[in-house]
Write a protein that binds this DNA or RNA. Structure first.
Length: 253
DNA sequence: ATGGCTATGTAGCATAGA
């Protein structure tokens, strides 16, 4: 099974690129973040034309998540169970007997921001909910924009980013809590090039200068991780005209 | 160098992203 996560930063703008990419990569399922589109405006028709079924949870301007799959996603659930959140950041569904959790973790803005507090609270709720989910269903993949660079090697300039949002000890601890539940960071199951990143700032020619962060991840439960054949970041998508600032992350098992 | 770039909502800029 081929799975991917991609923060499209506006599905409306990125739709042509997404359709090209689906035709080329032919994943079984892809989890999208930052669709920034209300459900009534979701481009279901174009996506179905490409041979995919979509389930989605969106809002105007911000956030928004979707799961696209060749097979119709089953048992769709919105949000984090037991956690009230008006922001549309999580959608889950079963595809090919695998439970897919598509997540857009809050950014946090900066350590002194209310949004940082919200991010940590959100991550706490997310991990306790996933812990419970993983006891109900063994085959789970958590895919999305985690807005956390787990280690210094996931950061182009660890000194400059030390302690900053996306890299702070509390955020990294929250990521390790997910690993503690039994999830594996699929990307690190394999040898990878140095300076492998999934996001580059639009400004300052950051992509060309390899100034990025690896903050988008595909986490696999133990059994899926054991069967994982490959994981990579499709950085070619960042070379497109009008690219998303994030590249897709792909895992095959 | 606290800027820079992109997208959205909405009609000249404000907000957010990471």
């Amino acid at each position: 099974m081929k799975l991917a996560a991609w923060n499209v930063n506006s599905l409306k703008v990125r739709l042509p690129q997404l359709l090209d990419w689906l035709a080329r990569e032919q994943p079984d399922a892809v989890c999208l973040q930052e669709t920034k589109v209300e459900d009534r405006n979701f481009p279901s028709q174009a996506i179905e034309h490409s041979g995919y079924r979509a389930v989605f949870s969106g809002q105007k301007t911000y956030n928004g998540v979707a799961i696209l799959a060749r097979e119709s996603p089953q048992a769709v659930e919105h949000g984090i169970g037991g956690f009230i959140d008006p922001q549309k950041r999580v959608i889950s569904a079963t595809v090919n007997d695998v439970r897919l959790v598509c997540a857009y973790v809050p950014n946090g803005q900066s350590l002194d921001s209310d949004k940082y507090r919200y991010k940590l609270d959100w991550l706490k709720a997310f991990s306790s909910w996933l812990d419970a989910e993983s006891k109900k269903q063994a085959r789970i993949a958590v895919l999305g924009d985690f807005n956390i660079a787990p280690e210094d090697r996931d950061v182009h300039d660890p000194k400059a980013w030390q302690g900053q949002v996306l890299c702070s000890p509390a955020e990294r601890a929250a990521f390790q809590e997910l690993i503690g539940i039994g999830f594996k960071d699929s990307f690190r199951l394999f040898d990878q090039p140095e300076k492998s990143f999934s996001w580059w700032d639009y400004r300052m020619n950051a992509f060309q200068r390899k100034m990025g962060l690896r903050i988008d991840h595909v986490l696999l439960s133990d059994g899926l991780a054991r069967d994982c054949k490959s994981s990579r970041i499709d950085i070619e998508m960042r070379r497109n005209e009008r690219p998303s600032d994030h590249a897709p992350v792909i895992a095959v098992f």
